[in-house]
């Protein structure tokens, strides 16, 4: 009964809630850490990045307009589905990331925990990062964080660093989603399978199409196009340490993007990461006129 035929798969991108092939038609081979063939992944081109930004832009109003409570529920739903696919993620981290069974399980568990942690912040970060300001006049003066829009990100890349398979990706996507941003993320090039499975999880949860767009392929090729893209509002360079990330920052400065610099490993969960991708809106409201 064990003579089951393995099916080598050719995976696709995740753009606008659909799974298209790369516009360029290119694929690349994904191998285990020891070099054995695992699967084919789509090699995204700059035009796939462009299409992702269009999809992400279209999704901003719906996602940021949803109530904080609703966003929290949707994010929590993703964590539930991650839990359901635990075995698959463990397999992929073992095969592609070269982890042991125990290490892989630990990484998946941590990733789910991080996701739940961020989901919980959706209807709470406002209270922590917003303010009622004291002003000398009969006014309420309230500062409140608003999502910045489309965030492009490079997921942690280095396969030698612990947690870059799934946890790294989750740790960059989740905080941006909490406040209502939409995301275009370049997955770990060497270990893309967990990212592709995460795309499948997201597409079968309640996340509207376009809120998360996942590209597999070369960050060196795609990141400059996202950094200079005029319709991207912020850039998370968490995994761009090995790229010319200074150039990416310079390109991003042309259109005044918020830029998070590279991190050595996997970014730790932090409210700062949620707050970074928000813009503070301050409103004045007269007091005492009823």
């Amino acid at each position: 009964m064990s003579a089951h035929l393995t099916i080598p798969k050719t995976y696709k991108l995740y753009i606008g809630g659909a799974f298209p092939r790369s516009e360029s038609g290119r694929t690349y081979e994904v191998a285990t850490r020891k070099g054995a063939f695992l699967a084919n992944a789509a090699k995204a081109s700059r035009k796939d990045a462009r299409d992702s930004v269009v999809a992400a832009r279209a999704a901003v109003s719906g996602w940021s307009g949803a109530t904080a409570y609703n966003r929290g529920q949707v994010l929590y739903r993703i964590a539930e589905l991650l839990e359901g696919r635990r075995a698959q993620f463990v397999d992929e981290l073992r095969a592609g990331g070269g982890l042991t069974e125990a290490q892989a399980q630990r990484e998946v568990d941590t990733a789910i925990d991080v996701w739940v942690w961020y989901a919980g912040w959706a209807d709470k970060y406002l209270q922590v990062t917003g303010n009622g300001n004291a002003v000398s006049g009969p006014y309420f003066n309230i500062s409140t964080p608003e999502p910045t829009g489309v965030v492009a990100m490079v997921a942690p890349q280095n396969p030698d660093v612990k947690g870059t398979g799934l946890l790294g990706l989750v740790s960059v996507i989740a905080p941006a989603l909490v406040s209502g941003n939409t995301v275009v993320v370049i997955a770990n090039e060497a270990v893309p399978l967990p990212a592709i499975s995460l795309a499948e999880v997201i597409s079968t949860s309640d996340v509207p199409g376009g809120v998360v767009n996942i590209l597999t392929g070369s960050p060196a090729e795609i990141a400059p196009w996202l950094a200079s893209h005029a319709d991207v509002n912020a850039l998370d360079l968490a995994g761009a340490g090995d790229l010319d990330w200074i150039d990416l920052q310079i390109a991003a400065a042309d259109t005044l993007k918020r830029v998070l610099p590279p991190e050595a490993g996997v970014p730790a969960p932090a409210v700062d990461r949620i707050q970074f991708f928000t813009e503070t809106k301050t409103v004045w409201h007269p007091k005492g006129i009823i």
Binding site: V53, R57, S228, H229, A230, D231, V232, A251, D254
Partner: peptide, 14 residues
């Protein structure tokens, strides 16, 4: 057209 002139993708804000 803006993409061709500037070398980077433009957006609906422009």
């Amino acid at each position: 057209r803006q993409k061709i002139t500037t070398g980077h993708y433009s957006g609906p804000d422009y």
